[in-house]
């Protein structure tokens, strides 16, 4: 009996392993086909140096060119800095909003406000950005309004500068900051805040010592998402920043689509990946968080 039972048990285990593989297959395929394979391809492509028509050798020229030409690396640095600024600004605006939604109101009004915060994302990013153009352009709402109030006597062009890019990026990113913050602040026990006051803390001390440490995983998660989205955004800087937006994704786009220089485009893409990973890594180190703790 017991001998007969053994093979079937073995078969059972093999069956288990098979079902596990089948279960993971979609995720593995997705990872492999859409993320890992293209990146290997990109890496290979970026290391190819074009010598003449259909004549290539392997080398780092695509990368050295990036450092040789100041417009390239300065654009990347500029893109990273504006993205960091946009992330910080989004956090500053989203935090009070999230705190209000999570802690100050209850019941139906809370859900209503949350939905209200989601509402702008029912229209596409393109339409939203066009909305900002309508507001900010020379004949736009703000310009006309200021003229009507008599504060200025000529129309002002508010598009085409870094501030306009920032406004657009922050607006586009709000949701991705508010949602993780509301989630994490929702889980903060009200009595912790009360204890913070009871033991002699003022609002600032309670915020710094109790609320922010508790919210840290949400803050970091929100910042990573927003930073990545901003850094990779191409539409908003192009539309609001105008011709000389000098956004790095725009340059990658130019390389691939306009110049057909896929090799250089791939190298730029890799550099963007390295810079974004580096910034996130530094951010995690500074806040002493781990990627794992922000995802739970």
């Amino acid at each position: 009996m017991s001998v007969a039972a053994l093979p079937s048990e073995g078969a059972g285990r093999a069956g288990l392993r098979l079902s596990l593989i089948l279960l993971l297959a979609p995720a593995l395929l997705w990872l492999g086909l859409l993320i890992i394979l293209p990146h290997i391809q990109l890496l290979a492509l970026s290391l190819k140096v074009k010598l003449g028509p259909r004549l290539y050798e392997t080398g780092l020229t695509n990368y050295t060119e990036f450092f040789a030409e100041s417009i390239y690396w300065s654009t990347l640095i500029r893109t990273a800095f504006i993205s960091i600024a946009a992330t910080a600004l989004t956090l500053l605006i989203a935090f009070p909003v999230a705190y209000y939604i999570a802690k100050m109101i209850r019941g139906r009004r809370k859900n209503l406000l949350f939905v209200l915060a989601l509402l702008p994302f029912w229209v596409s990013e393109l339409i939203r950005t066009l909305g900002w153009i309508i507001i900010l352009r020379e004949t736009g709402l703000i310009s006309l309004g200021l003229q009507w109030l008599g504060l200025i006597d000529q129309p002002v062009e508010l598009l085409g500068n870094d501030a306009a890019i920032l406004v657009g990026l922050v607006y586009t990113s709000m949701l991705f900051m508010v949602v993780p913050l509301v989630t994490v602040l929702d889980s903060l026990d009200d009595t912790l805040v009360e204890a913070g006051y009871d033991l002699g803390g003022n609002g600032f001390a309670v915020l710094r010592e109790i609320i922010i440490p508790h919210a840290m995983p949400g803050i970091v998660a929100g910042c990573i998402i927003v930073f990545m989205l901003t850094l990779g955004n191409i539409l908003t800087p192009a539309l609001l920043g105008g011709k000389n937006s000098l956004w790095f994704t725009d340059q990658i786009f130019q390389k691939f689509i306009v110049r057909f220089n896929w090799e250089q485009g791939a190298a730029f893409g890799f550099l963007l990946l390295i810079v974004s990973s580096l910034v996130v890594w530094i951010g995690l180190k500074i806040t002493r968080q781990s990627l794992a703790s922000t995802m739970t």
């Binding site: 026990d189 009595t191 912790l192 204890a195 913070g196 010592e209 109790i210 440490p213 508790h214």
Partner: peptide, 10 residues
Amino acid sequence: FQHLALFPTM
């Protein structure tokens, strides 16, 4: 407090 409310981050 009833549930003590010790600060878990400290």
